[in-house]
Structures are given as structure tokens and as C-alpha cells.
Computed example of a mutant assay.
Amino acid sequence: MTNETEIPTSALALSDPSRLLLPAVLLVEDDERLGAMTQEMLSEDFQVSWARTGAEARALLSGAHYDALVVDRRLPDVDGLRIVRDLRAAGMTTPALMLTALAEVDDIVAGLDGGANDYLTKPFHFAELQARLHAMLRGFAARTATIAIGDWMLDTVSSRIEDPDGHGLTLTRAQAALLATLAASPAHVFSREELLREVFDDASEPNTVDVYVSYIRGKTTRSIIETVRGRGYRIGSPEAD
């Protein structure tokens, strides 16, 4: 409880590969003691990365996918709510919980209106934070079982995708997982290495991603996945066809 040393997620994953299956959470908290304690407690159920500033959080978000965010409002370089607002403006739907000492009703309303999914005021119990994160992720998963990709609809449970006219076909699980990963962060350009880690065995050949992108385009439409030259792929806008 009192250990103030950050626990590297990579080290935990190497010692226990099953941890790679845990939801990835980005904790944004500038208080060293609270941040270390929160990371340690949440690491029982989540893979936790810890950013101390808004700039560090933005850098991590640009390079990795997270299943949930826990964001303090009073950061040294930016209001944490601005991070959430910018993500929503960019089309990212990653669930976010605001963690803050600002407990007035107006502050809570501003946080929720600004794009936060939940709001927990300090001081708090770690058990409550864990429970709220689990509940938030369950609710998000239920809402996103069907994902809109332009005018196409992907059902991540059945791996079935429908075109704008309602005609459907079934993708393989890997194809559906690739599309869902891209759609979860529509503003992010995923490198082949990222997609290998997120969707496939990262020991697979790099061209595995290219092959699956080609399969998906062949079954649906080319514009469903956009190629960003020299960088990788991001979700496309198939309604433009």
C-alpha cells in the first residue's frame, strides 16, 4: 500500500503472460504517492500505465490502445477534463473516469457533460474505484457490441457485418477483431506492430496485417480501412463509396 515505486506493466506481463489478457488502463495522476498506490491496487485486475502530466498522457494515448482512462482534473499542465474533451472531439469513445477533489455538483456536471463516463471524488476507497472501473467497462462493452463503421455495422459478438443496405456476411474472428480495434480509436493510425500485438500473435509475420486488411476489403469495401502511407492503417469512412 505504501510502495511509491511505479510498477512497470511490461515487467508484470513478462513474469505472468496471462496479464496481457487484462484490460489496459491509463492512469493520469500527478500526485506521486497517490499515483503509485492507485497503480499498485488497480494492477490486481488491470494492466496499468501511469502518466504524471497531460503531455505524458497524450503521448501514451498516441502510441497505444487503452480500454479505460482514470484521469485527475488538476494536472500541472492542463485540466484533465480537456484531455477527455479532446479525445471525444477526435472520435475516441474509450470510457473515462474523472478522479478529482473537485466535488461540487457543477464540477461533476461539467465532467460528465465534457465526455467523462463516471466521476469519483477524493478521498476515495480503492475498492470503489475498482468496482466503478469494472462496471464502466461492462457497460461500455454492452453498448459497443455493435460498432458503426461509416454506414456499415459490425457485430463483434457474431463477427457479422452489414452493408448500408442491410446485406450481411460473417467475418472470421481475427478479421472482426482487427476492424473493432481500428474502430475503437478512429483518430489513431495503427502501425503493423501495434496491430500484431493487439489482434494477432506478435510473433506472426508483419505482412499478416496486410493480408488480413486485403481479406476484409475484399469481403466488404476498400474504403473500410484507410492506408496511411509510411505509418500503417486506421479505420476508414465506407459511407463515401
Rank of each mutant, 00 (worst) to 15 (best):
218 G>P: 08
156 T>N: 11
131 A>C: 09
68 A>G: 11
212 Y>K: 06
164 P>G: 12
110 A>N: 00
78 V>I: 15
71 V>S: 03
101 A>Y: 07
139 G>N: 08
193 E>C: 07
147 I>G: 14
53 T>I: 05
183 A>V: 05
235 I>V: 15
60 L>H: 10
175 Q>V: 06
188 H>V: 04
211 V>M: 07
193 E>S: 14
149 I>A: 07
43 S>E: 10
44 E>I: 02
146 T>E: 14
56 E>G: 03
24 A>P: 01
121 T>A: 05
223 S>N: 13
231 R>E: 14
192 R>W: 00
59 A>I: 02
161 I>K: 08
30 D>M: 08
155 D>I: 01
68 A>W: 06
201 D>K: 02
90 A>D: 13
86 D>G: 01
230 G>P: 10
26 L>N: 08
30 D>W: 12
176 A>K: 02
55 A>T: 14
239 E>G: 10
59 A>H: 15
36 A>N: 00
219 K>R: 10
178 L>H: 05
153 M>K: 13
30 D>A: 15
199 V>K: 04
210 D>L: 05
82 R>D: 06
142 A>Q: 10
54 G>D: 07
158 S>D: 11
225 I>H: 08
82 R>G: 00
228 V>R: 13
100 T>Y: 05
204 S>Q: 02
23 P>M: 04
165 D>Q: 12
3 N>E: 15
147 I>L: 15
22 L>M: 13
153 M>V: 15
164 P>A: 11
181 T>Y: 10
